[in-house]
Design a protein around this nucleic acid. Structure first.
Lengths: 249, 249
DNA sequence: CTAGCCCGGAGGCCTGACCACCGCTTTGTC
DNA sequence: GACAAAGCGGTGGTCAGGCCTCCGGGCTAG
């Protein structure tokens, strides 16, 4: 009797611990009970406790350290890990480049606008410096790919700087990540895209000017055009996003 | 010696299995080696194999069944689970209502536009029928909350119908889910929001007309105004999203 | 005062046994 | 002969206990 567990023990234990985290309002770095104590308090064996810990670890909620003073600690999931987990979801969905750009087209201009007049001079020079690497037309395929990665990285930096909206930042970084992986795993940029770097650089430069001037509307418009331009190029490429896991966090 | 494991065994095993899934192009429903076979082929103990299986399960990649013919099977993560995992990430981030609406403001109009002229008559009537429940001003707080949930559900249905862009659909559903949870866990809609349902209903009705007429620009514009209107109301409310886990998938 | 050793407590991994579950086969009855 | 009930067997699920590894901090030797 009693027993009855629609779910398996490790998950029951994991749920219990999650509840503790919420109820006790534990913060990252706070320590959870040790294996021995959990065994005793929950009446389960060591193996079960360990499995539940792996579950929480996999979900990015806790982190374990060995040695004295070790144990399980509440942990704020890294963005990289979140991206990885989300990519697991999309692994069996069919995402096309067009899908990615539909998102970027809507969000990147928003991000650009929100950045207008809010970037420090130091960051501004860092951004401008990064443009160098793809200012000229690429000479070979290898350089071209690297340019595209640098160009994507520019958007990553913008997202980083915004800081204001974690969710917006996350989504943009995710889409960028997907596009980066595409360039790594596939030869996507072969025909007639040699100027993509230079074109992108021009857009980026204009965008920085608008941002520096604090002209939100102008920044939004430029980014919008930039995305349209990039989308037009990408649409001529492969339609189907490669099914692959992203790098593990 | 030899050994050397920057990572711990269960994760190495999990990575290996992931690699198998990618390399062998396994699809949901395909069976993975049993515990005994994994123990032998990878030279690890049962406990380690089980921990790695819990990890993959937690990440939504596999599912296990007991009994004869049971075992671990490749599994497509449900959207609900993906949302749950993503909420784990945002648990320690500070998300404001404003952040949510910045996303909605950018994406929902896009969705609406992409739907113009592409909704079947049956779905159209289902959508129109759903408007009934919040056409009138709410009489009490309870009804008001229910109206808001129904109203949010309308957006969920739209996302569902689009179907075209899994990522867009996911993001919209996620943001909607967050807003729904807010209404459940907090008393958010107290002061002067009694007409929110009716106002929303009007927007929704106009939107459906535009979609039916196939007028993408009009649909985009209406949704944009709708979001602005809703954002204006929400901005007067609590700024900080409650830190809580969403329902477990 | 510093460098090094050493202790002890925490998780990490393994072994081996037994339990719970459930599709399939066998058996029994009408 | 057909259908239902009983049970086999293989699979994951859980438990118990043991030994190994790691590492911070205290203690000791230089």
């Amino acid at each position: 009797m009693a027993g009855s567990s629609t779910k398996r023990r490790p998950y029951q234990v994991a749920e219990t611990i999650k509840r503790w985290i919420v109820e006790k309002q534990l913060k990252p770095g706070d320590r959870l009970p040790g294996e021995a104590e959990l065994m005793e308090r929950l009446g389960v064996s060591k193996g079960t406790v360990r499995e539940s810990t792996r579950v929480l670890e996999a979900q990015g909620l806790v982190e374990t350290r060995t040695g004295p003073g070790g144990g399980a600690f509440v942990h704020a999931m890294s963005e990289a890990r979140a991206i990885s987990l989300l990519s697991h979801y999309l692994f069996f969905q069919d995402i096309s480049i067009r899908d990615i750009y539909q998102i970027r087209l809507a969000l990147e201009p928003e991000l650009a606008a929100s950045l207008a007049g809010r970037v420090s001079p130091e960051d501004m020079s860092r951004l401008r410096a990064s443009l160098e690497s793809y200012a000229d037309t690429a000479r070979d395929e290898e350089e071209e790919r690297q340019q595209h990665l640098d160009s994507l990285n520019f958007h990553l930096m913008l997202a980083e700087l915004s800081g204001g909206n974690p969710l917006l930042c996350f989504i943009i970084r995710f889409t960028t990540q997907v596009l980066s992986d595409l360039t790594i795993y596939r030869r996507l940029y072969e025909p007639a895209t040699h100027d993509l770097g230079r074109t992108g650089c021009r857009f980026h430069a204009e965008l920085l000017d608008a941002i520096e001037a604090g002209d939100a509307e102008q920044a939004r418009r430029i980014m919008h055009e930039h995305m349209l331009s990039a989308q037009a190029v990408m649409n001529t490429q492969e339609a189907q996003v490669r099914r692959d896991f992203l790098s593990e966090a």
